[in-house]
Design a protein around this nucleic acid. Sequence first.
DNA 1: AAAGTTATTTAGAAATATTCTAAATATGAT
DNA 2: ATCATATTTAGAATATTTCTAAATAACTTT
Lengths: 156, 156
Amino acid sequence: MLERPITYQEIKEKLALHGLKATSQRLVIYETLCKSPQHPTAEMVFDWIHTANPSISLATVYKTLDTFADNGLVRRVASEDGSLRFDAHVDSHNHLYCTNTKEIIDFEDDTLQNLIQEFLNTKQFENFVIKDFQLQINGQKIDHYKTVKVHDKEKK
Amino acid sequence: MLERPITYQEIKEKLALHGLKATSQRLVIYETLCKSPQHPTAEMVFDWIHTANPSISLATVYKTLDTFADNGLVRRVASEDGSLRFDAHVDSHNHLYCTNTKEIIDFEDDTLQNLIQEFLNTKQFENFVIKDFQLQINGQKIDHYKTVKVHDKEKK
DNA sequence: AAAGTTATTTAGAAATATTCTAAATATGAT
DNA sequence: ATCATATTTAGAATATTTCTAAATAACTTT
């Protein structure tokens, strides 16, 4: 997870790596996705950037996010409410899904990733090649306006 | 996982348990979902039942599946292609997702469920109550027309 | 078994969401 | 600076989902 804001220069390099032209629209869209704590839909991205960038059309946002996802620059995130969302955070990580607020909250934990990976290593998948995996933990936030945190339990 | 076909009587009992009226539409829709090896969308369910039940409207299928899901009779399944699907199989289980065919394949493994559950037990979730979880394993089928199977790896 | 009460279904309209089109434009290469 | 080509645009076309009010059917009570 990148802690400082990503620069346009860095985005340009990412795009070049995939042979994608660095249009101003793509820079804005990618930057917005990086800054978003949410996992927004195409529509949400469009709404956020629209005031500052009224000339970027909705079709472009849809197409751009699709292109990004196809190139592995962003990740598509399935949501139980049926909407397709996007995540600039492409490393293997997990999600908490709040069935009330429909929020998708990142949850990173290397121990868990390793645990699952090791389990999968003991299995033989016939006719299927694994690319990655993610755990979706469903539940509900208690206070909808506060954030969710995860820590280790006190040992008894 | 139920091995024999579910009877209308059993569906009626399930519905009654949730205070839902046992309409013929609901019986057909629930039965269809049980029989489906896929994880169909509302549209797919409608298409399947339409020939034999031309009077069941699409709006009813949408509404019925929604009602079922809200009552825990079926489960909503998020899909990376952005479509909302349904699963009559409500016990905790995992999914393989083929990014090519968009198929969602059930994958049951108690060891894995326990592994994850035990991990979660060691964590303290602040402001979040866990209901359930599922692992989504992304990848690709090799032969699109054959099924996927999972077994233990040979020990070396 | 009939009547009453209420949830459910229906068809079609309305609202949303997504994709497509062909022309215009901007990017990166030469 | 020019060229070839990918990308964007607005709006139309599709597709998906929800809504509406009237009609119907299920369960309850008698």
